[in-house]
Computed example of a mutant assay.
Amino acid sequence: MAAREADAETASEGRGKVTITEIARQAGVSVPTVSRVVNGRSDVSPQTRARVEDLLRRHGYRKRPQTTTSRAALLDLVFNNLDSPWAVEIIRGVEEVAHAAGVGTVVSAIHGRSGDAREWMRNLRARASDGVILVTSALDPVLHEQLRILGVPLVVVDPTGSPDLDAPTVGAANWSGGLTATEHLLSLGHRRIGLIAGPPRLLCSRARFDGYRAALEAAGIPVDASLVVPGDFHPESGFTGCNTLLDLPEPPTALFAASDQMALGAIEALRRRGLRVPEDMSVVGFDDLPEVRWSAPPLTTVRQPLADMGKVAVRTVLRLARDEQPDSPRVELGTELVIRSSTAAPRGLNQAGPPA
């Protein structure tokens, strides 16, 4: 039950009143865990249940009669924004596992604005969430501390950086994904390989760039700064970035876009110039969103297990809600290169020599 209900339910015998919050403190568990024991829920480990029940008996705790039915278990799934198919894939994974566990899901977007984040926190207190899955680190330290005080379990998916969060994280192998994408283009004979990078503040963007750089360096090819252009994971930046690369005196013969949406924007830029993929330029994306298998041509990309990341996050936050520790504080799921029709050996005026 919620922290908001903690002061409403007290012991009525013996040693004076005691709140659920105090019981939780003495038991070394969260307020929602004590509530689950009080309400006879099964999702509590036997050891924790025994410890809490002993304290409840010692304090003479009696649950206040309820005039309404018990609320359903809820998880909060919080994004910075919801304007990407990437978010939909994570929601799909979260919903599958939460539904099977009989847990409801509340999806919110805070848009990186402190006012939206504070409103979300007020709503979180009101609905007494059992756990939070944060698909952004864009909460200020005050709100992080409020989550801790409330005793609400927290899991961070695809952390944006290295925030000082005492919370498990779930991500993908971004470095190896960037490495594999670039190695694939190198294996086809490309030597001038452009990169449309993601926002540098994001840990996943930096890891994908580092993988790109590592593959080039291993092949004895220095990184050409003119071939690396900024992006923001959205199609418009892929379109703009590709045009920037095409305007170079010697454009690249291949392009690695650090997201599928940027790759689709790049393909549109090539189409508008009368250039073909992969004949005039090979393109590789990152994510493997459902629509890219139907693009023209179908996109070679690095599959990021987005739905699986959501599934792991739910399982982790439910374990925390039962006062069980996760197997690892940092889970990194593997990525996989999916080869389709958007990549081929280079040809034309910019063609490099055969692979070394």
Rank of each mutant, 00 (worst) to 15 (best):
T343V: 07
L275G: 05
A296H: 15
F209I: 10
A11N: 12
L320H: 01
L124G: 03
R71M: 10
S114G: 09
G60Y: 09
R4H: 12
P200C: 05
E291T: 14
L270P: 01
T67P: 07
T240H: 11
R125M: 09
G241V: 00
E336T: 13
D7W: 09
I193T: 01
A307Y: 06
S205Q: 03
N243W: 01
R206F: 03
S45C: 07
K63L: 09
R49P: 10
K311W: 03
A117V: 03
F209C: 09
L246W: 01
A356V: 14
P159M: 03
Q351W: 03
A254T: 08
G211M: 00
A98Q: 04
E22T: 13
W294L: 15
A218L: 01
E13M: 14
D323I: 02
S84N: 14
L75I: 12
T240Q: 11
S328Y: 08
M309S: 07
D287C: 02
Q146R: 13
G93L: 08
V132N: 10
S114K: 15
T335I: 08
E336F: 04
A181D: 04
G285F: 06
R122I: 02
D116Q: 10
V155L: 02
I91W: 07
L186E: 06
V156S: 10
H59W: 08
G220T: 04
T10S: 09
L124Q: 11
P354Q: 13
P222W: 02
D308Y: 07
Q146L: 06
L337Q: 08
G220H: 02
S295R: 06
